Simulated scan of single mutants.
Amino acid sequence: MSPTTCLACACGQFSLIVQGDPITSVECHCDSCRAAGARLQRLPCARPLLDSRGGTRFVLYRKDRIQFAAGADRLKEFRLSSGASTRRVLASCCNTPVFLEFKGGHWLSLYAGLWPDGTLPPLEMRTMTGDLPDASFLPGDVPNLKRQSGAFFARLLKAWIAMGFRSPRIAVSGEVQA
């Protein structure tokens, strides 16, 4: 059986279980993640979302390997604009960011803040560094990709094939204004 990990929001009223290994673990520097991060971390009781370099850490998992264990009714979505094709979902009990979802995507980008200290999967790459005015300050410990690489998309495709080309829908009711 694949290993499982239980993750929870800051106050513990929402939790989820992930099964198996993630697709990848990334730090995103796109304009959208930086703008959303700046807005979301100003919500009441919210923890910092952007790291010291302005990036947002995510761990990508197939949707069929994620199970909401408790508090799913507390999930609320946030969109940067009414027409945005991505949504960020928070646990409204404590404004903990839970995941980023691309419209029609077969995976969820889970926010790194869900992992207890010392358990976050290691960073594999930084993406969208081309959106930064100057990316020269980024360390060279992992690849710093201007966009997403072919290998990144190959991992997503492999996961989608393993899911039988399904893209399960995740119902969330309500919105967060930030």
Rank of each mutant, 00 (worst) to 15 (best):
T5N: 10
I17T: 13
A72F: 02
P133Y: 06
A10W: 12
P121V: 10
S32D: 13
E124N: 00
I17L: 15
L40I: 03
G164N: 12
R87P: 12
L114G: 00
S2I: 00
A112S: 09
L114W: 05
T119N: 05
L110P: 02
L108S: 00
D141T: 15
D51G: 04
E77L: 13
R42S: 10
I17A: 09
V59F: 07
P116E: 10
V89F: 09
K146I: 02
G71Q: 01
L60Q: 04
S85K: 10
R79K: 15
A69F: 06
D73F: 04
K76S: 07
S25K: 00
D21F: 10
G130L: 13
S167A: 11
L123A: 04
C6M: 13
V172I: 07
G20E: 08
L110A: 01
A91R: 07
A46M: 05
P122R: 09
A135I: 03
R147C: 10
R147P: 00
I161N: 01
G20P: 11
L90V: 03
A35H: 15
W115S: 03
P22W: 03
I66E: 04
V89R: 02
L16M: 06
L49C: 04
S15Y: 10
A10Y: 05
L156C: 14
G104L: 11
D131P: 13
R166V: 12
G150L: 12
P116R: 01
T129Q: 00
R53W: 03
T119K: 03
I17Y: 10
C9I: 09
L43A: 03
A178P: 08
R42E: 14
V142Y: 05
W107P: 02
S85C: 09
A178F: 02
S32L: 11
K146E: 14
A178R: 02
G83L: 07
Q177H: 15
K63T: 15
T56G: 02
S32P: 00
G118S: 02
G55K: 12
L132N: 07
H29S: 02
P116Q: 05
T5L: 02
R169F: 14
S2F: 12
T4E: 13
A112Y: 07
R169G: 11
G55C: 08
A112D: 08
D131K: 05
E124R: 00
G37I: 03
T86M: 12
E27R: 06
N144E: 08
E101Y: 15
P44Y: 07
W115Y: 13
F165W: 15
Y111E: 05
L110K: 00
L108M: 08
E101D: 06
C94A: 04
K158Y: 13
V176N: 08
A84E: 05
F68R: 10
L7N: 00
T96I: 12
M163P: 00
T127D: 10
P121E: 13
T86G: 06
S149M: 03
A178T: 02
C9E: 07
A135K: 04
L16W: 09
C45R: 14
A35C: 14
F78E: 09
A178E: 08
Q67C: 12
T129A: 03
